[in-house]
């Protein structure tokens, strides 16, 4: 640090819609999406606050408060978050609030820390906007787990060449008229065919980081509609906890739609 008269560190004032603020926010959202271990990708809704502080000896610190909205892409979906559709508000949206800190040095941003909390919109808000819209169900509800198991069993039964196992349940809604459970869940491709799985399901292990995502609707009388898309090889830092019993469960962080993530880099 050069010796000289004391210079106070004064913050620089920039607007939330300043291109520099937007650049910092875009880098933060990209980082958040690529480092989440569960749930769905988020899109930036607004920059709530920004503070820019000088850093000694060089550079600047950017402190941002961001409002995010859940998209329809699960983290296993390789589609960039910019190309993912933001959930409509009537779909009981989950919003994220993140406090992020970035360092700007020589014109380039790097992440220093993030603290994010996500929570579903309040039931009162949804009912006010759309009285007939279904609300999110708790993910460990017996009806939800049964629906996922039935849907996955049906998919695996119809596709003998591949055997999928459950990674995590993403969303679930219990509907009435007709009584049904609508579920979304992430899956992983295993090293088994359907026939192999009938003989030794516990030996069917995840193969080559190939994930997929399924949507299903299960009516109480047993009518099941399920569709899954399987993606190509990816490098995701998901931790596998193989229990030896089906369904295989990988890194489920919670059974609600609320999550808190803190990380200092």
């Amino acid at each position: 640090i050069p010796v000289g008269p004391f210079q106070p560190l004064l913050s620089r004032v920039i607007d939330c819609d300043d291109p520099e603020s937007e650049e910092a926010a875009a880098i933060a959202v990209d980082y958040i999406n690529s480092h989440n271990l569960h749930g769905y990708k988020f899109a930036l809704n607004s920059i709530e606050k920004i503070k820019v502080l000088p850093r000694r000896p060089t550079g600047e610190l950017f402190l941002l408060e961001l409002d995010l909205l859940q998209t329809e892409c699960h983290i296993v979906n390789p589609l960039p978050a910019e190309n993912c559709t933001v959930r409509p508000i009537t779909d009981h949206v989950v919003e994220g609030e993140c406090d992020v800190k970035l360092l700007k040095l020589d014109g380039s941003f790097s992440m220093l820390s993030r603290k994010c909390h996500s929570k579903p919109d309040s039931a009162e808000d949804i009912i006010q906007i759309c009285p007939d819209c279904p609300l999110l169900a708790v993910l460990n509800d017996t009806r939800v787990i049964n629906a996922v198991n039935l849907a996955l069993a049906q998919y695996n039964g119809e596709h003998e060449d591949v055997y999928l196992r459950l990674v995590e349940i993403g969303r679930a809604q219990i509907l009435h008229l007709p009584d049904s459970v609508s579920v979304e869940f992430a899956v992983v491709v295993t090293n088994c065919s359907g026939k192999d799985a009938q003989e030794h399901v516990d030996g069917c292990l995840p193969e080559d980081q190939r994930f997929g995502f399924c949507k299903a609707s299960v009516l109480t009388e047993g009518n099941i509609t399920v569709s899954c898309e399987v993606y190509g090889h990816q490098t995701l830092c998901l931790k596998f906890s193989i229990t030896g019993v089906a369904p295989l469960v990988i890194a489920i962080a919670g059974v609600t739609h609320d999550h808190l993530t803190k990380e200092h880099l």
């Binding site: 004032v13 939330c16 819609d17 920004i50 409002d67 933001v86 508000i89 808000d125």
Partner: peptide
């Protein structure tokens, strides 16, 4: 002549929050 005192510097406040890209929750 009466000298007008210089106006005190006004601290600029950032225009925040920024625009809402999708909808207000």
């Amino acid at each position: 002549p009466v000298a007008t005192p210089p106006a005190a510097p006004v601290a600029k406040l950032p225009l925040c929050p920024g625009r809402i890209r999708h909808y207000q929750v």
